[in-house]
Design a protein around this nucleic acid. Structure first.
Lengths: 196, 196, 196, 196
DNA sequence: GTCTAATCGAGACGGTACGTCCCGTCTTCCG
DNA sequence: CGGAAGACGGGACGTACCGTCTCGATTAGAC
C-alpha cells in the first residue's frame, strides 16, 4: 500500500513544481497513523516523519491537522452514486449498510476525527456542513428514484427525512453503534415519509 | 498560625480527604475557560492556574481533560423532569427548545467537547453512552404522559422515536444548527410515532 | 532486617511521646532505599511510604533530606577505636582497608550523599566538617600510639598528615577509586611524616 | 555578554543545525544562575527561561543537569599552562593559589556541582575522572620542570605526589576550606617527594 | 476515671521542576 | 527552486516530590 518504507532518504525535489509522490506519501502516512493510533496519534510531526517529508512541506499544503484529516477523507469518500435495488426500502437499507461498512474500515476513525475537530475549528465545521449537504443530496436522489417508481409522492418532508437519516447515521458513528441493526429505524423513518 | 490572612495562595488541605472548595474552584475554572476560550483553551494547566490549584490536585480526580469536562457537564445537567404542557406536541417542542437553550449557554460548548473527546477516549465514550440512555428515558417519560393522556398508544416504536429525537438534537449541536426551527422535524417524527 | 513489610497499618501512637519503633523503621527504610536506588531514590515521600510513616512524622525529626542521610550515617558510623596491629604501618593500612570496606557496603553511598548534599546545604556542610574533625582525631590517635611505641617523634606535621590521609580517603570515595591499592599512598605520606 | 535584554522572542533557528548563539546563551544563563543561586537554583527550567530557550533545545544537547554544569565548566576551565616561577616550591604555591582563586569566583560552585552530581550520575563521574587525569598531568608537568632544574630526581613517587596534591585541592573545596593557607600541606607533600 | 496533650498514619493541599511531545516557523543544503 | 532535514522558542502534557496542613485514632500521664 504505502511506498514510504523502503526508500531511506525520502524523495527529492522534481524541480520547481509540486511532487505528487510526496502528496500521496503524506496522505498514506496520515491514513495509516489514523487507523493505527487513532486521532491522538495523528500529529503533524509523526505524519512528516513517516512520509519522509519535511514539516515545511506538510504545512505548505495542510495548514493544520484538520485540513489533513479532511484531505484523507476527501480522497476516499464514497460518491453519491447509490445502488438501485429496485425498491425504496432496499435502497435505504443498502445505503446505510454501505456507509456503516465504510466506517468499519479506516474511514470511521477519519470521519470521527473530522466531527471532533469541527467542534473547535470553524473551517473544519464549514467543511463538515458542506459534506453534510452533499450527503443529503445523495439521500434525496434515492428518494427521487422512489418517486419515479411511484412508491412515494414528492412531498415536502423529503428534506426532513434525509436530514433525519443522516442524523441517525452520524449519531450511530459518534456513539459507537454502527454494528446495531438499522432496519427498525429505517422503517420508522420511512413510515413518517409515507404518512406525512 | 492562621492561614486565612489573605489566602493568596488558594486553599490549604483540610486533612486526608477531599476538599469540596477545591472541587468547586476547579469546576468553576473549567467552566469559565470552556465558555471563554472553547475546548482548545481548556488545558489542564490553565484550569489549575485559574483555580489556584496544583496540577497534582487536578489529576488526582480528573485523570484527563475528558473527565474534567464530564464533571463540569454532570454538575449542571438538566434533570429528567420535563415540563408538562398538556399535549405531546407541546411537551416535545418545549423539550427541544429547552435543551437548545441550555446549549446556547456554557453547556453547548461543554457537551460538544464531551462528544469530541469521546471519539478518542473510551471511558468518555462510555459516559456519553450512559448519558444517552438517561436522556432516552427522559424522552420516554414524555411519551408515557402522552399515552396516559390518550394521545398515542403504547407502541413498540417509542424507543426508536426517542433515539431519533436524540439523534436530531445531538446532530444539530455538532453541526452548529441549534438555532434552526425544530418544529418540522418534531412533527415528522411524531407522525411516524402515531402511524407506526 | 526490616519489620515494615508485614504490619499493614503501620504503627500507632504510643502516647504523648516519641515512638522508637517509628524512628527505627524510618532509618531502616532510608538505608534500604539508599542502597537500592541511590541518592536520587531517597525521597522523603518514598521513605515515609516504605516506613509506613506519615510525612509529618518524618519532617518532625528530619527537616530535610540531608538530615535524614546524616542520621542514617550517624547510626552506623564506625567508632574511633582503631585496631592496634603493633606497628604504625599496620595500623594505617588496617584503618584505610577498614574504611574502604565499610564504604563498599551501604555506607559508601550514604557518605557520598552527605558530601554531595553538603555542597549546597550549609548545615550538612557543618556536620561534614564536624565529622571531619572526629576522623582526624581518630587518625591522630593512631599516630599517638606510634609515638608511644617510639616509631615516630611527636612532630607538628602530624596534623597535616592526618588531614592529608583523610583527603586521600574522601577523594578516593568521590572519584570511585576505593578498590585501588592504597599502600603506595600510605607509605608516601608516612615518609613525609618521618622525614618532616 | 548576555543577549537576553531586549530581543523578546529570543533567537530563531538557523536551519537544521546547531545555533552557536543559543549554546552561548544557555551556558551564560547556567553560569549566571549557578553563581547567583548555587546548585539548587540551577534548574533546567530556570536556565531555559533565562536563556530564552525552549526546554527541548536545552535537553537536545544537555540531557541532564550534570551535562550542563559540565559544559559550563569545560568552557571556562584553566589550561595546563602553569606558571614557571623558577622553583618547585614557587610553582606549587602559585598553582594552588591560582586554582583556589579560580574557585573563589564562579568556578568553585560549578566544580562543587560536578563533584556532587558525579556521586549519582555515572557519566558525570567518568567526566570527572577524565578531568582528574588532565589535572594530574598538569601537576606532573610542574614536577618535570623541577627535575630539569635539578631540584628533584625523576622518582616513581611523582604520580602519588600529584594525586595527593589534587586530593588536597579537591577536599579543600568540598569542605569549604579554600581560604586556609596551603603552604604547610605543600611543604609536607614536597618533603615526601624529596625523601621518598 | 476522666481529661489533656502529644504522636501516630494517612493523604490532600498549592507548588515547582521534571523530561517528553508537539506546535508552527525558520534556515540551510542537496539535487 | 522545491523539498528533506531538523533546530528554534514556546507551551501543555502527566509525574514525582516538596513541605505544609488537617484529620481521626491512639495512649501515657496529669488531674
Amino acid at each position: 500500500m504505502s511506498n514510504t518504507e523502503l526508500d531511506k532518504p525520502g524523495r527529492a525535489s522534481i524541480g520547481a513544481r509540486r511532487n505528487p509522490e510526496t502528496e500521496a506519501a503524506i496522505l498514506d502516512a496520515a491514513q495509516e497513523l489514523l487507523s493505527e493510533k487513532g486521532f491522538a496519534g495523528l500529529s503533524m510531526e509523526a505524519v512528516a516523519k513517516r512520509a519522509r517529508a519535511g514539516k515545511a512541506t506538510l504545512y505548505r499544503w495542510y495548514p493544520n491537522r484538520g485540513a489533513l484529516v479532511l484531505a484523507v477523507h476527501q480522497r476516499r469518500k464514497a460518491g453519491r452514486a447509490y445502488k438501485d435495488t429496485g425498491s425504496l426500502d432496499g435502497d435505504l437499507n443498502w445505503l446505510v449498510a454501505h456507509i456503516f461498512d465504510l466506517w468499519r474500515g479506516d474511514m470511521g476513525m477519519a470521519f470521527k476525527c473530522i466531527i471532533a475537530e469541527a467542534q473547535s475549528q470553524p473551517d473544519i465545521l464549514a467543511a463538515l456542513q458542506q459534506f453534510r449537504s452533499e450527503r443529503i443530496e445523495g439521500i434525496k436522489d434515492v428518494l427521487d428514484r422512489a418517486v419515479q417508481r411511484g412508491e412515494i409522492t414528492n412531498a415536502a418532508n423529503q428534506d426532513v427525512f434525509a436530514e433525519q437519516l443522516l442524523s441517525f447515521l452520524w449519531t450511530s458513528l459518534i456513539t459507537d453503534q454502527i454494528d446495531k441493526d438499522p432496519t427498525e429505524t429505517i422503517s420508522f423513518l420511512t413510515s413518517a415519509l409515507k404518512n406525512g
